[in-house]
Design a binder for these strands. Structure first.
Lengths: 252, 252
DNA sequence: TTGTTTCTTGCATGAACAGGCAAAACATGC
DNA sequence: GCATGTTTTGCCTGTTCATGCAAGAAACAA
């Protein structure tokens, strides 16, 4: 049996059943489990499935919640980033928080006894904040974008324009020293720009994979960032570039 | 059974039922309760649910009340009401949905293949609709009221004023034949009035305990209601009063 | 309060895993 | 045909992960 033949059958089964088991595939194909694991590893590297312990599940649109695609490691990593980011907060401050899983982790990391005013266009962030008794929550409405988990559009922009904040937690973007902060969507970028305009300082918390990447739409220059929260394992050369632009770097 | 598979099933059940019990999941999956508890802990850490004693509830506004306060009967009752209410919908319609647990149940009961445009000021309703691919969701922002689970205020009113809907699902209110529809909060009532003004028909789904009760703030007259969805055990005398005012009564 | 249920933590076990290695299958050049 | 290099595959080794069990802590109920 050809390698490519197996790959195709794995894709088919995954589409049909919603999951595959390594052992089951091995006996079905008449090869060792090691070979199947290698197949799954390659397909996962190509983004055609998501590897899980014991087998694999579909990636992309099949998985209901975008969150479910995040690996366990990424969750812990983002939780660490979130704790470090929350340490930048002072009682009584007002914040803009936009979308992204890292920002949701930050929202969850805010302690219950902290008094804040938070305006967000992310439903995930808003949900996380509803439990906090001392947070005054302002929801920035608008057209909801399922892919982003945030509201965008003229209604959102109008709501942002009426507010101001001490800090803006800018999330889920590309970050590059020359291109600055960039976003994947035009409407999303517009909201981010409005929030940046109306806040005194920008905070960005990113995992390593976001560093030194860029997306089509520009949001802000690199030197507009006040605080950058990164993993301990972030490449020092990249960080030095940002520091030379006046960005304060914090390690999670 | 894959760990990821269990996680997905837990998410599904949570979305469908509004709660899950650790012991029930353990016997359903054929694993120990410890494993289920670990699953729930991980999902909670990822923000996909909220852990409570004995099981878990959806994260965000759903979880406002502890599990013990949401009796099993009420959940099932509201699910039945929701199914009957959803039967009133037609494809392609536009809706206002405001807050309340019954309206959240209605949002969860909307089938995946129904095309709708929904504007809501309830974070719970919005969260329930994010999974539906064919629903265009418009979030009505504003100041978030933790007790109500909805946004209110001038921003909300302004957003409502720009929209129109075929139906308005009016929730969590008192209902009385002489005083009409009433609400417990002034700002909440104002938003409800605005939604009523801009929609062609009002739908109210209530459990028996809401019938023949009144709250301070008036929202609409009894004869402004087009559809009233009630339990089968609702008192016929009360229903007859409403029917004489031109209200169509539907049984769950 | 007392008693019961549920929860967390630590630990042991077995399954699943990644990486290295060597044999087999295959292709390529002479 | 033979030699060479590449790819694929299976096996081995140590490591990681998921799970269940047990003990103590915490939350709930009476």
């Amino acid at each position: 049996m050809l390698t490519e033949e197996r790959h195709q059958l794995i894709r088919d089964r995954l589409a049909a059943d919603g999951k595959v088991l390594a052992g089951e595939l091995a006996s079905r194909f008449g090869v060792s489990e090691d070979t199947v694991r290698r197949d799954l590893r390659e397909l996962a590297k190509a983004g055609q499935l998501r590897r899980v312990y014991g087998g694999a599940v579909p990636s992309g649109p099949f998985a209901a919640a975008p969150l479910s695609q995040r690996s366990r490691h990424a969750v812990e990593e983002k939780t660490r980033l979130a704790k470090a980011a929350v340490a930048l907060l002072g009682a009584g401050q007002s914040l803009f928080i936009d979308g992204g899983t890292t920002n949701e982790a930050i929202a969850r990391a805010i302690p219950r006894d902290m008094e804040l005013t938070v305006a967000t266009n992310s439903l995930g962030v808003a949900s996380a904040l509803t439990d906090l008794p001392l947070v005054e929550l302002i929801v920035l409405g608008g057209r909801y974008m399922p892919d982003l988990g945030t509201c965008v559009g003229t209604d959102t922009l109008a709501a942002v324009a009426q507010l101001g904040a001490d800090l803006f937690f800018l999330g889920s973007c590309g970050l590059d020293i020359t291109r600055g902060v960039t976003a994947f969507d035009s409407a999303e970028a517009e909201v981010k720009r409005a929030m940046a305009r109306n806040s005194a300082g920008i905070v960005i918390a990113v995992t390593n994979d976001k560093l030194a990447t860029a997306a089509p739409y520009r949001v802000a220059e690199a030197d507009a960032i006040r605080h950058l929260v990164v993993e301990r394992s972030a490449p020092p050369a990249t960080l030095a570039d940002f520091q030379s632009r006046g960005v304060q770097v914090h390690f999670a």
